[in-house]
Amino acid sequence: MEEKAISVTGLKKGFDGNEILKGIDFDLEKGENLVVLGKSGVGKSVLIKCIVKLIEPDDGDIEVLGTDIRSLHKDDELNEYRRKVGFLFQGGALYDAMTVEENMRFPLERLPNKPDNDEIEKRIEEALENVGLEDTRKKMPAELSGGMNKRIALARTLILQPQIMLYDEPTTGLDPATSKEISHLILEMQDKYKMSSVIITHDMKCAEITANRMKVIKDGVFAFEGSYDDLSSKDDPWLKNFFE
């Protein structure tokens, strides 16, 4: 059997006795784009934060690239694992005390075998070129527009060349045209770097552009699954709300 990019079984997580995720199961195949849909507050962000160990699940197994992530305890192992899994935060999370260039440099300079300066320069150049923002190098994050902010955040995540990408609502808060651009950018990067991705969104346009497969969370479990066309043609009234 081929190794899965991500394999989650029976994932449970609650906060203060309030159960949010109630048994999540899913697999992410290599090279696949899985879109996860769900209403605000169902725990979509919590789900992918469990995958990068920002949040400890209460129960369940998470295997990523064949490794049970519970077996990662030492800081070095954990950091090495985290570099393989890119995470795009809902708000971008650019370091606002640093320029765009310093933002990009930050993770590279902290690699265990730090690349030399030329290599770092080359990778920053390439990353900014990928997102079409070469001229923002010296800018501070506060000077960027929302769309630019997301692009730079994407570039900063991709600079470590992760094998898996987790996108937390990459297009929320952007106008429709910019959302579309970002969605296409995600596809392009996917293709260029041969990554597997989980994309969380409630932007249907983004889902339509990027999804190979979709899953919908309802009440702490996955309630629907299928391609974009499958789901959009279903008769379920709850589900229909998303597609209107």
Binding site: K49, R83, L94, Y95, R110
Partner: peptide
């Protein structure tokens, strides 16, 4: 205040998941 705002805007988490200490 500085670290607090970095925390709530997830900048500290972003450092962590990029494998930096």
């Amino acid at each position: 205040a500085e670290l607090g705002s970095m925390k709530v805007t997830e900048q500290i988490d972003a450092m962590t998941v990029s494998g930096a200490n």
